[in-house]
Design a protein around this nucleic acid. Sequence first.
DNA 1: GAAAAAGCTTGTCCTATGTCAACGTTTTCA
DNA 2: TGAAAACGTTGACATAGGACAAGCTTTTTC
Lengths: 189, 189
Amino acid sequence: MYELLKKYISNRAQINDEQMDFICSFFKPMQTKRNEILVRYEEICQQYYFVNKGCIRIFTINKEGIETSRFFAFEGGFGTALPSFIDQQPAYEYVQTIEKSELLVISRTDFYYLVSAIPEFGLIYRAILELGFITAQKRIYGFQGFDALEKVKWIIENQPHFLLRVSNQMAASYLGISPSTLSRIKSKL
Amino acid sequence: MYELLKKYISNRAQINDEQMDFICSFFKPMQTKRNEILVRYEEICQQYYFVNKGCIRIFTINKEGIETSRFFAFEGGFGTALPSFIDQQPAYEYVQTIEKSELLVISRTDFYYLVSAIPEFGLIYRAILELGFITAQKRIYGFQGFDALEKVKWIIENQPHFLLRVSNQMAASYLGISPSTLSRIKSKL
DNA sequence: GAAAAAGCTTGTCCTATGTCAACGTTTTCA
DNA sequence: TGAAAACGTTGACATAGGACAAGCTTTTTC
């Protein structure tokens, strides 16, 4: 149950067994269904989710009803409505498991307790933020001023498994192109 | 010279006078010209810049020669090629002062020394990362699936001074639209 | 302060991609 | 397992906005 999480942590910090068990004790297992919503648009996010099995999607829907996905967390990754988790404002986005999933959940309170109590865990949080920031910047550069074909090539380059793992619709909503366009591009390789 | 920086720090952390002077002692004044480049495309970023006067722009140029700007730091703000500063990979972007500017510069080594030596300064770094992350997510949601008019409205809403402060060209390259389109939209309010 | 450079605006034209709809396939779940 | 729903693909058509160029204005620089 906790192997993947322990692997995640030990890959990123020097943590001894005792501390590791202490950290893991704050994460509670949770089973979810396909398309289950974990955080709603107006809610304030109070939980951080680690994906043991399945997949989490973070997305929003604008006034015109257009869906845009901003992040997918697969097995072995963390995901939540992080802006809301950080600043405790309404999420204005949804957190959803797009498949039947097995998660490990930690509350915000416990998470920040660990961040301040265990310096090594604080460094993990810092690394999450740094990586999140870098990823977001790459995405901005990778998408702006690129046409649909280039975006698809970009995602194949940067996240090779992405198109295989998520539906055509969701991939399109991540790339900011219409499902038809994505479909046409894929058919031409 | 250091008032703005001190204000920035004291607004975000509990730092006593002695520590404040210690922190400031690592920041060196620097004068730059209009359009001076501080970090080049292939360089690895070793400096963090605080803007005392003037303005820093972070941008890149892709193979097709299209410029895209990802961030502007104005008076009282920090700016650098942060992804490169963090992971010490080539920047693949430029840092530039778009006006004659007055900066306070700290080296990466000193910066991370302060982060680990002064817990309160570590919290400032964390806050920078958190805010950077949140801002980037908002930008992704704010630009994806929006047409040119909506993007312009978005920037007026979110950074009211932006269009007044930067050139039409640079604003367009930030918004991901052509200068002509931005010009046309502005003329219609 | 004059010449040169850079920038802004606006017209014309053109293309990439969105929309909508029809159809066939796959998935879901009772 | 079979009906219904969801999804993917493809065609026809419409359009937002990019490219380019010309003319005008502002800024820079020496």
